[in-house]
Design a protein around this nucleic acid. Structure first.
Lengths: 246, 246
DNA sequence: GCAAAAGTGTTTGGCATACACCCATGG
DNA sequence: CCATGGGTGTATGCCAAACACTTTTGC
């Protein structure tokens, strides 16, 4: 927080202290059509794809800005949302060769996990196109946002044992292969089908339903759902859901 | 990053977009006299203790601000330094009942690991006192900074397997009990002396020297040092040094 | 019947934990 | 010679990893 007397400033350079531009950028993850997706928007044709984002307004704290952006693009309010990093950048202002103004900008980075089936994508005035991209097949993303996205994925990977990923990303009823494919996408490697299932069920948050879903020329997988009560009880105690190495 | 066209802003409210105050606050860890310490400063008598921090100047990105603060307080440059979080806050400005100005402030939080033996503590104009505090015995720390400090410690705990803690905090030669006491302080619990030693040596970054240090009425502990080459090789490959549960 | 993928069970090895024993030092 | 704490070795148990076998479904 800002102090009454700011410390460690170079002496006599108070005039150099100023307010920077701050934006909030959201990496919004969703799951559908069998794979993990990220939501990107394109301000106008010709420009590169970008993460949904915006500037902080005067009456907001960063969390509120992130919620506002999420709501504006997807219509959703109650989703998993977490700050994971921030990024600084320096730019020389054009047109001033002598004593060029150096402009610093800061991006506060959030990631969100949403049930993409519930989302109503909104193409507002500022973003002509808005679209889901398979996370291993992203094209033409703004380079700085690419770094943010990759950091988001890496951050999600580190926290994978602490977040009820499936609960946040999947609809009420889901199959074990669906759940597994999310973990595989996040970790970037295949997981043993049988060990995965045993582990997931052993935690106790996931209960089997007496239903199956026909998906192809093979045995129909069972449907499962999260036991929200048990999960919340564990969350209250701050327990790690599972080890990070599945 | 700020976009050319800012997205997701409420229409017609451009005037509400403004720049916030941003400070960088550093949780600086050191080790000496047998225990893990954190560096705090007191702007003036009567005020509470605070984490070293300062505002970002116009030509800086946050990393540079953090380095500047670290250098100003300790004289050190090449240390482990990592952003771990940011904090937002809302304050209603006093004295304006009608249409009260809401002031948002943001603190970007870093933690540093330094060899405290190399540090030259500097009491500059802005901080009358600067002092090491044993991390379990911190008195009268500014409440908001207390939250930042605790988040720093918690963040360090989560990353304990990825950082060569001892290399950053200890002098060239150190004993195994010293190394262990750092891990115990960070994790907040005792570790088995024998298992700890075996694990540390098994990683291969720590080599035994043919020297001991006399420290008391018992067997003199061996001295060890880090094999920097092997560590850098592993870091390059992005390998986790050790599991998180020692 | 066959391919494909789901459900269930078993074996194995490595690592965390716990503890026993010996060694060196100062008082 | 005893208290203290460092160094080395060993037993145990759990869990992750690997894999075998059966079941179900569409073609």
């Amino acid at each position: 927080m800002k102090k009454e007397k700011s410390t460690a400033e170079p002496h006599g350079k108070e005039k150099d202290i100023f307010n920077l531009n701050i934006s909030v950028d959201c990496t919004i993850f969703g799951f559908h059509s069998g794979s993990l997706k990220v939501l990107l928007c394109k301000p106008s044709a010709g420009e590169k794809w970008m993460l949904p984002g915006g500037l902080i307004t005067r009456d907001e704290i960063p969390d509120e800005t992130a919620r506002r952006i999420l709501k504006a693009k997807t219509g959703l309010s109650d989703t998993y949302l977490k700050q994971f990093s921030f990024f600084g950048r320096k730019d020389k202002k054009k047109g001033e060769k002598e004593n060029p103004e150096i402009l610093s900008e800061i991006s506060l980075a959030y990631f969100a996990l949403i049930k993409s089936g519930d989302a109503q994508l909104v193409e507002d005035n500022d973003s002509e196109h808005i679209e889901w991209f398979e996370i291993n097949n992203i094209s033409d993303l703004h380079p700085e946002h690419k770094i943010i996205f990759e950091t988001a994925l890496s951050s999600l990977r580190k926290q994978i044992g602490f977040i009820p990923i499936g609960y946040e990303l999947l609809p009420e009823k889901f199959t074990m292969p669906e759940l597994r494919s999310i973990y595989e996408a996040i970790l970037g490697r295949e997981l043993d089908r049988r060990n995965f299932q045993r582990k997931m069920l052993s935690i106790g948050f996931i209960k089997a339903l007496n239903e199956t879903r026909k998906v192809g020329a093979h045995k129909s997988p069972n449907l499962y759902s999260f036991d929200k009560k048990k999960y919340e009880e564990a969350e209250r105690l701050g327990i790690q859901l599972m080890s990070n190495n599945l």
